[in-house]
Amino acid sequence: MPKGEIIEFITSCQDSESGGISASIGHDPHILYTLSAVQVLAMYDRLDAIDVDGVVRYIVSLQQEDGSFDGDKWGEVDTRFSFCAVMILSLLHRLDAININKTVDFVLSCMNFDCGFGSKPGSESHAGLIYCCVGTLSICKRMDALRADELAWWLCERQLPSGGLNGRPEKLPDLCYSWWVMSSLSMLNRIHWVDKKSLEQFILACQDSETGGFSDRPGDIPDPFHTVFGLAGLSLLGDTSIKLVNPTYCMPQETIDRLKLEPQVLHI
C-alpha cells in the first residue's frame, strides 16, 4: 500500500484547532478516528506526521469530572472512549496527561454482577465492552481490580457448540467476538479456558474462498472489520503464519515492543 499517501491523508485529517483527527478531510474530529490515526502512524513509526501535542490536548479536553471520556464535543460517554483515550496516550507516551485514577474508577463503576462491563454505569455486560474495559485496566496496570476467575468464566461460557463465540448469553456466534473474548482472556492469562481447535475451525469457516476476506458467520459477505478480527484472533490462537498480535492493543507485538510498552497481563 502507498505508505506516503496514507500518512499524508492522516496528516490532513487533523483539526488544528481541537487537535483531534477526523474520519476524512472536512469531517468533525472524533476520538475513534484519532485512535485509528495514531495506531496506523505507530505501526509506520511515523508519529511525527501529526501534531502530537494537539492530540494530547484533544484527549485531555474530552475527560469528564467523573473520569469518563466523551467521544467528541457532542458529549456521548462510553467506556469505549476511555479505552481509546488511554490507548492513544500510551502510544504517545503521554499517559500522565490525564487523571489515571479517575479513569480507572469510572471503568470500575461499570462492573456488573457477572463481573463483566458495559458501556456506561448500569449497562449490561457485553464482550466488546469487556475488551475495552479490561484493555483500559491492562494499560493502566490495574488488572488487580478485576474479579478474574468470575469474569473469565463468563467469557469462556461464550463458546458455543459450533466453536464460535457470542458476545452475550443466549446470542448467536459472530467472528468478531473471537477477538473481544479471546483478547480479554489473553490479558487475564486464561485463554486456555476456551477450546482453541473448534474456535480456529469456526474462524477459518468464516473466510470467503473467493475474496479471502472474513465475514461474521460462515457464508455471509466478508468485510474489513471481520477480516482484521479474524486474523488477529488466529494469531492469539497461536497461528505462526501471522505476525504476533498484542491482545491489549490489537496491533503487531513488534510495534508494542519497539515503543517499549508493557500492558499488564494477570498472573495465574
Binding site: D149, A152, W153, C156, E157, Q159, P161, G163, R190, H192, W193, V194, D195, S198, I268
Partner: peptide
C-alpha cells in the same frame, strides 16, 4: 463439557 476443560482443570487446581 469439553470446550471448557481448561476452566475445570484450573478450578480443580485452585
Amino acid at each position: 463439557d469439553k470446550l471448557r476443560a481448561g476452566y475445570y482443570e484450573d478450578l480443580k487446581t485452585k
